[in-house]
Design a protein around this nucleic acid. Structure first.
Length: 601
RNA sequence: GGGGUCGUAGCUCAAUUGGUUAGAGCAUCGGACUGUCGAUCCGAAGGUUGAGGGUUCGAGUCCCUUCGGCCUCGCCA
């Protein structure tokens, strides 16, 4: 076999005259009957090969048979292309290789799609032939970026004294949180392991064990329906530190994030990253992960709305709801149909029952700006003026309002704001806005189950100053949790943990987890806390989302070498699949027919 | 579990209001060609219109069911 001496994509004018062996895949061929040109591709790029029948008839004859994606190695001489023959579109376009010897390393069936046009090909086909899709420079670039991020993270944390430690993948199922993936145990019939949703308890136990600083780039599993930016199997950069407060954790980690963005994108992240309280985020942006690339803050106008003749507004406020909205700069250009159909349908997905709109216009008589709308007649001139002032609205703007329960108004307005920000071009394409969201409530009242849920997770510590509220006012406890948000995407989050077993028991109690349940599910952990647990805290970054931001994609499958579909299938391997009866027998498992199937029989 | 959207040749797409034998570009196969680089030129082959059922004289097109991709609500401590 010809042994490779150079990579295709790295050859330059300076290599002219040297004899090289290159190997790769046939990207394209141009057969002139006499001269044959091949663009050869490897991970590093393309290079043009020339086969000349007068110089090397054997190689030329063989070259005429080459087809797309055949794997070849060639020996030849790098030579310059003469004046006007260069290809400025290729980085190797100033040279070519005059091939003396061709070795066909492997043939290929005609590929189901062309590598050059794969970005236009439907994703299903690309995923089932991921090894072909992967030959695209864009995909290899993602794989490279992901590798670089992992390396930067390892180097940074190593330099700062962290140990990389693996934790078990076969663990104990706990009913809290997301649905577990279960793995049946062969040795204990009827018992199951669960794949980790995160190594949360193990990393805390590592702190109890005196490890002091831990990290792991680790796969996590949550059996919930996927979205564009999440799938059931994902990777976290998991970090934990002892004897720290939340400021220590945030400053250590923003240093790491700044380094990653600097090395990969050349961006200087201004440190320290700014902070915003949970309350400010929800009040001004309707959500705990605000997109700060543009302003357009939400404003509440319940005080004005309650006195208007518009029953939808006044009635909602009377019933304890709010009227809240935003002012879209230049949004008056939307047609009434755009607003009443497209935008109203959009917010309806988030349970908003309606969307009121007011266009900011200048009257024909040239007076002061006012509001025009089918509902404008319900507002007095003074009320219109107050609304305009509240939003600091300008002529040509569009004010959109939702009257509903506060939770629903925020839930609908937050995505509406993001949509309008994009539609109205309110930010630069490559803008990056980082923010730590802090001061989260520790608990959240769950209406359906009539109990508290953890907003973060049950191991999150309250602010020390809030400890007194554990007995008196648990719903208003502020916790020591923090999320790092970039461009409206939560890329990481964590907290200072509870290290006092008495506090931990108290929190379980508030979460309506009985002593027996707590002992059964978390007994091992509570026990560990009793043997000298140091104060500790940490966080976890979503590696997939970080790489998405760094590569500018909004599809998580783009940043995973072997991703799964929306129904959790791997189209390459066809997992999940049925298994042999023998395997089931060994596990003492029997599959159950669906009720519908039974009734059909 | 719900909503939306898409599915036509290997790929990307077209096909008027339900109307003749479902077309085009690329890819494939055969031929021509000494400097191309998305090579060009000539020719050929390629279809259960995702699947099943229905309405109709007639269905890619309308209706029902179903499968799959994507987006999304719920869910995701």
């Amino acid at each position: 076999m010809l042994k490779r001496t150079k990579n295709c994509g790295e050859l330059r004018k300076s290599d002219v005259g040297s004899d090289v062996v290159v190997a790769g895949w046939v990207n394209s061929y141009r057969d002139h009957g006499s001269l044959v040109f091949i663009d050869l591709r490897d991970r590093y790029g393309l290079v043009q090969l020339v086969f000349d029948p007068e110089m090397h008839p054997e190689a030329h004859e063989a070259a005429r048979k080459l087809r797309s994606e055949w794997v070849i190695a060639t020996a030849g001489t790098v030579r310059p292309r003469s004046e006007g023959m260069g290809n400025p579109k290729m980085v190797t376009g100033e040279i070519e290789i005059a091939v003396a010897e061709l070795e066909i390393l492997n043939v290929s069936k005609t590929p189901p799609f062309e590598v050059d046009n794969a970005d236009k090909v439907n994703e299903e086909l690309r995923l089932s032939h991921r090894y072909i899709d992967m030959r695209r420079p864009e995909v290899l670039k993602m794989i490279e970026t992901r590798h670089k991020v992992a390396k930067l993270v390892r180097d940074y944390l190593d330099e700062n004294g962290f140990f990389e430690i693996e934790t078990p993948m076969l663990g104990k199922s706990t009913p809290e949180g997301a649905r577990d993936f279960l793995v049946p145990s062969r040795l204990y019939h009827g018992a199951f392991y669960a794949l980790p949703q995160s190594p949360q308890l193990f990393k805390q136990i590592l702190m109890v064990g005196g490890v002091d600083k831990y990290f792991q780039i680790v796969r996590c599993f949550r059996d919930e329906d996927p979205r564009a930016d999440r799938q059931a199997e994902f990777t976290q950069i998991d970090i934990e530190m002892s004897f720290v407060d939340s400021d220590d954790v945030m400053s250590m980690n923003e240093g790491m994030i700044a380094k990653v963005f600097n090395e990969i994108l050349g961006v200087e992240v201004a440190l320290p990253i700014k902070r915003m309280t949970y309350k400010d985020a929800v009040d001004n942006y309707g959500i705990d992960r605000p997109d700060l690339r543009f302003d357009m803050k939400l404003k509440e106008i319940s005080d004005i709305a309650k006195d208007t003749d518009f029953k939808v507004f006044s009635g909602t406020v009377e019933k304890g709801g709010i009227v809240k909205g935003l002012c879209a700069p230049g949004g008056a250009k939307y047609s009434r149909r755009d607003i009443e159909k497209t935008l109203t349908d959009f917010v309806a997905d988030f349970e908003a029952k309606g969307l009121a709109w007011l266009k900011v216009v200048k009257p024909e008589d040239g007076g002061e700006i006012t509001l025009a709308s089918s509902i404008a007649k319900f507002f007095s001139d003074d009320q219109k003026k107050q609304i305009i002032e509240r939003f600091d609205a300008k002529e040509g703007d569009l004010i959109l309002l939702i009257a509903d329960k506060e939770k629903i108004a925020n839930k609908a307005l937050a995505p509406l704001r993001v949509k309008l920000g994009a539609d109205l071009d309110l930010y630069e394409k490559d803008a990056l806005e980082f923010v730590w969201v802090v001061d989260f409530p520790m608990l959240e009242w769950n209406e359906d189950n009539q109990r508290y849920d953890s907003l973060h997770h049950p191991f999150t510590a309250p602010l020390e100053s809030e400890m007194g509220k554990l007995d008196t006012d648990p719903g208003n406890i502020i916790s020591q949790a923090y999320d790092l948000v970039v461009n409206g995407s939560e890329v990481g989050g964590g907290s200072v943990r509870i290290h006092d077993p008495r506090v931990q028991e108290k929190v379980f109690d508030l979460l309506n987890i009985s002593k027996e349940q707590a002992k059964d599910q978390f007994g091992f952990f509570l026990k560990a806390l009793e043997y000298g647990a140091p104060p500790h805290g940490g966080l976890a970054f979503g590696l997939d989302r970080l790489v998405m931001l760094l590569t500018g994609t909004d599809n998580i499958r783009d940043v995973i070498a072997f991703p799964k579909t929306q129904r959790g299938q791997c189209l390459l391997t066809d997992a999940p699949s049925l298994v042999d009866q023998k395997q089931l027998d060994e596990l003492n498992l029997r599959t159950q027919k669906h009720l519908n199937q039974i009734s059909e029989e």
